[in-house]
């Protein structure tokens, strides 16, 4: 695909002690592309996601964002992280802040916006994810699905170039999964660049441009969702699909 690359991983290797979690990873995500990452537990999907904004360091290889290599620790890295939103499986809303403050905090402290402007923007985003009426509650007072939608609004408030999702719906009750997926589908339609680790095959089929299948720290397949789901090439992928499609 001849798209403008936004996220590029070249020959990335990562170890946890002896464990080789990412093996020679090459991955390009173009601007506006939605890439779904799937694979068995422990295959390195979360780690891959977290290396992209350097929550995890790598041992070798290069990662570039919009043409610039990831800086090491410090201000430059912080600046770059603000350009890449991240949504976690466990939401990670700031427990001591209200919903509105959660969305506004980094706008004020990182982007340097005035409090009022930040709050105004936060309300817009909360409205967009359908939670404006919850603005003054604390995270613990919301359901999981609501918390996750706030977390998405919080990430969007930084006006990121790309969004990373690490199993955003895995900790949710079934009836809440869809409200979060709907927000994500909407984002995808609007052209946000997204890397999504998920087992939601419906989302992958409907919204992904590509599916990346990982096993044992390697990218085993990287294809369009249609091709991948109807005709997986590798035995690992066939085996994996037969298992998850069973239930």
């Amino acid at each position: 695909m001849a798209v403008d690359p936004l996220i590029e991983l070249r020959n990335v290797n990562k170890y946890y002690g002896e464990l080789h979690v990412l093996r020679d990873i090459d991955l390009t995500v173009g601007k506006g592309e939605v890439v779904v990452v799937i694979g068995p537990s422990g295959s390195g999907k979360s780690t891959l996601c977290r290396t992209i904004n350097r929550l995890e360091t790598i041992e070798s290889g290069t990662i570039t964002l919009d043409g610039r290599p990831l800086p090491a620790e410090g201000k430059a890295l912080a600046r770059l992280r603000a350009e890449v939103g991240m949504v976690f499986q466990s939401f990670n809303l700031f427990a001591h802040r209200t919903v509105l403050q959660n969305v506004s905090l980094a706008q004020v402290k990182v982007r340097g916006r005035g409090r009022q402007e930040a709050d105004r923007r936060s309300r817009e985003l909360l409205d967009r994810v359908g939670l404006l009426n919850q603005a003054d509650k604390y995270p613990a007072q919301l359901s999981g699905g609501q918390q996750q939608r706030v977390a998405i609004a919080r990430a969007l408030a930084m006006e990121p170039k790309a969004m990373l999702f690490d199993e955003p719906t895995s900790a949710l009750d079934p009836e809440m999964i869809n409200e979060v997926l709907e927000v994500m589908r909407q984002l995808a339609r609007e052209g946000m660049t997204m890397v999504v680790v998920t087992h939601e095959m419906g989302f992958a089929r409907a919204s992904a441009n590509r599916v990346v299948f990982m096993a044992d720290g390697r990218i085993v397949e990287d294809r369009s969702p249609d091709e991948f789901f109807t005709d997986p090439r590798s035995d690992r992928a066939k085996d994996f699909l037969s298992k998850i499609l069973k239930h």
């Binding site: 929550l55 620790e73 201000k75 992280r81 700031f94």
Partner: peptide, 18 residues
Amino acid sequence: VPRGQGEAARSLGMTFGQ
């Protein structure tokens, strides 16, 4: 404090000190 709190803060572009 759960690890995720600090990670979420850093992923939003806050410096370590922030």
